[in-house]
């Protein structure tokens, strides 16, 4: 009897996630605010770094992972703020808080939506990136398909959580990077080193230690975010 009730509850939760996700995707599809802004911003960062360092082919393999990661980081911070600012307008967030629905569904939907947006930006940017930096992976290139989404998930999950945390403070635009960047640093380190190993093919990480650390980071911080999101949502 209880298991049936639990199953229904789970199904309801997933429906809730789907509803929130559809809403977020529809808003983005109609306005295309987040993706356009992120895409142009990330492109600018890639161009700026390329001009500032003027790297050779060998050097660009070393730094490309870092540039990609930092470009995504800077670009997504503005979009993450937007994701919640949108809900503050017309007091949508207060209305959502008054519904009896679980806050974690809203959080998961926002993370999924932002993950999609950032991934689209990365997918569009990747060819440009490889051309500008004359890249040709010397290691297992297909591993990038695991490293980049894992790193993006770490960024987006933490970013969505801390954007919700800083949304009601003074200077929220300033506060988000200040609290997100220190927490994100271990994931940045793991992602940059993993990408560097793949691009240079130096075999310095045969057991994929950095990839495992990134996956572990994702699991730990996503769990804690899910557990604590209701506290942040109803902090008053």
């Amino acid at each position: 009897m209880t298991s049936v009730a639990q199953e229904q509850q789970m199904a309801g939760w997933f429906r809730l996630v789907g509803t929130h996700l559809r809403k977020d995707l529809r808003i983005e599809w109609r306005s295309r605010e987040a993706i356009n802004a992120m895409l142009f911003f990330a492109l600018l960062v890639v161009v700026l770094f390329s001009m500032a360092f003027d790297p050779t082919a060998a050097a660009s393999r070393e730094i490309a992972g870092g540039v990609l990661c930092v470009a995504t980081l800077f670009a997504s911070v503005s979009a993450l703020n937007q994701a919640w600012t949108r809900e503050i307008r017309h007091d949508v967030l207060d209305a959502l808080r008054m519904t009896p629905a679980d806050g974690s569904a809203m959080f998961v939907a926002k993370v999924l939506a932002n993950f999609l947006f950032v991934s689209v930006v990365q997918g569009l940017l990747a060819p440009v990136f490889f051309i500008f930096y004359n890249l040709r992976p010397l290691g297992d290139g297909w591993l990038l398909l695991a490293v980049v989404p894992l790193g993006t998930w770490a960024l987006v999950a933490n970013g969505t959580f801390f954007a919700a945390l800083s949304i009601r403070s003074r200077n929220r635009e300033l506060l988000l990077p200040l609290i997100l960047f220190p927490i994100f640093l271990p994931a940045l380190l793991a992602m940059v080193l993993a990408v560097k190993t793949i691009l240079t093919g130096d075999g310095s990480d045969p057991h994929l230690l950095w990839l495992k650390m990134l996956a572990g980071y994702d699991v730990i911080f996503m769990t804690v975010s899910l557990l604590l999101f209701d506290t942040v949502l109803h902090a008053e």
Binding site: R170, L175, L178, I179
Partner: peptide, 12 residues
């Protein structure tokens, strides 16, 4: 340090 900053910035 960011924790201490948050305590400065958040209100109420």
């Amino acid at each position: 340090v960011s924790y201490l900053l948050l305590r400065r910035f958040a209100e109420g």
